[in-house]
Amino acid sequence: MIRSDILKDIAPILRDQLVVCNIGLPSQELHMIDDQPTNFYMLGTMGLSSSIGFGLALAQDKKVISIDGDGSVLTNFGTLPTIANNVADNFILLIIDNGSYGSTGDQPTYAGKRTSLAAVARACGCENVVEVPAADTKDALQAAIDGDKMTIIVSKCESGNIKVPVITMDPVVIRDRFMKAVQA
């Protein structure tokens, strides 16, 4: 399975949740598969999906799912100690780990080599860290949503991309409809 297969698989669960989605292809794929006002698409700023989602989770009570990538977590490693030390049980970080920088041409990341993001998250003090094969992502995500405990899911999948259109929605429109969905 590649990232877009996982997104197709979990789209029915994501539908009712607040989702902050990583820059580039992940946002474009989610937007194509099931655009929802509850989705916040990152159009820039690589690495901050977990930080934006975590800030949102700390500020209000609804569940928040940040969809991140291995390359993006590597670029913002400081996020993991922050998450670990300010626990928000309405926060789920889903790291889709395809071992490559997918949006830029599938250059390998260190997460696909010797570095385990799950082990790093645990070392940073995160308590509920699960690593699953791609096919089990849907069940792991549902369990995390049902569990009411802050959870980090590392979903290991193959690298590869599908053809998707870019998101042409204005950022202020994305943000405004997302904020209305947060308040609804």
């Binding site: 930080s51 949102l56 500020a59």
Partner: peptide, 26 residues
């Protein structure tokens, strides 16, 4: 006031963006 120290300032701005969308002035 919820004080959440960050490890780098861009991370901190991400937290602030999320907090604001969640209804808190950052």
């Amino acid at each position: 006031v919820l004080h959440v120290p960050s490890n780098k300032e861009d991370e901190g701005m991400g937290l602030c963006a999320g907090a604001w969308m969640g209804g808190k002035r950052p």
